[in-house]
């Protein structure tokens, strides 16, 4: 698996997009820090960007890589390598290279600004952890969509739709449901509804850590009341891990029946 991972990783590192992505985060980090002039404020702004953008980039990269490396994959399939090894290797290759762009791109400006002297280092660390989780989750989801659709355009469309749903529509539908059913007790419902969306979950995870009640929103407040800060952090991190495991498991399952 390491060989496949290595080749996928090199392949991506060689393509311009990894650098564009890296440069984007680098620029974003610098601009935010020098405009806000305050690490804590920069982290909150960054949170809002990371939570929408990393899933989008992960989705697009995942789908694009899957369809573009069709030939490479077929070449590998004729070699004495297990199917799941090939795809998990590729999956890790993309996820790791994206995560590297994120961590280095944001890490460099924050380090230069004096992150180690600030108390915000743990908040920032958590932000990177959440961003990395989102990368791994959405690349896996994108692979799922691509595996189920032979047609490239269709696969791309569904993947973007999935991102749009989780990033925007889900929240809207959730809010509407809260308004419509506001005569009922909604604590547990909203708690579970959050767990089913990795983007919402990441937002709460960071906000719990930052402890900004004003930004927590309804679900965040429920979350905090229900779990407390530390246990809440633990539970949401655990659910994030499940969000990685389940799509990867489905990739493996789907592969067993797939024709190439």
């Amino acid at each position: 698996m390491f060989k496949i991972l290595k080749y996928s990783f090199y392949d991506l590192m060689r393509s311009r997009w990894s650098y564009v992505y890296f440069a984007f985060y680098l620029a974003l980090g610098f601009v935010l820090l020098f405009l806000n002039n305050d690490i804590n404020k920069a982290i909150i702004t960054l949170l809002n960007i990371i939570i929408v953008l990393t899933p989008l980039i992960g989705t697009i990269f995942g789908v694009m890589y899957f369809y573009n490396s069709k030939e490479f994959t077929e070449l590998l399939l004729a070699q004495p390598i297990k199917r799941s090894t090939i795809f998990i290797g590729q999956y890790l290759g993309i996820s790791i290279s994206l995560t590297l762009s994120l961590v280095l791109g944001l890490g460099i400006p924050f380090l230069m600004y004096g992150l180690f002297k600030s108390s915000a280092i743990f908040d920032f660390g958590l932000l990177l952890v959440v961003g990395s989780f989102l990368n791994f989750i959405f690349v896996a989801l994108a692979f799922n969509v691509a595996l189920s659709n032979v047609n490239k355009i269709k696969g791309f469309g569904y993947a973007i739709l999935m991102w749009l749903f989780l990033a925007v529509i889900y929240d809207g539908a959730f809010l509407i449901s809260l308004i419509v059913f506001n005569e009922y007790p909604l604590d547990k419902y909203s708690l579970f509804a959050t767990m089913f969306n990795p983007i919402d979950l990441s937002r709460i995870l960071i906000l719990l850590k930052l402890d900004i009640s004003a930004l927590l929103g309804y679900t965040g407040a429920v979350f905090k009341k229900f779990f407390g800060t530390n246990f809440g952090l633990f539970v949401s991190l655990f659910v994030m891990v499940l969000w990685v495991i389940f799509p990867v498991w489905r990739i493996n399952r789907k592969l067993r029946k797939k024709d190439f």
Binding site: D11, S15, E71, F72, L75, A78, Q79, P80, I81, R256
Partner: peptide
Amino acid sequence: LKKWEYRNQINYLPQIANFPVNL
């Protein structure tokens, strides 16, 4: 069926030579 080690004993020339373009 469902095995992979046996492919070490097979050389296969695919129909259309499509390779990763970056290599």
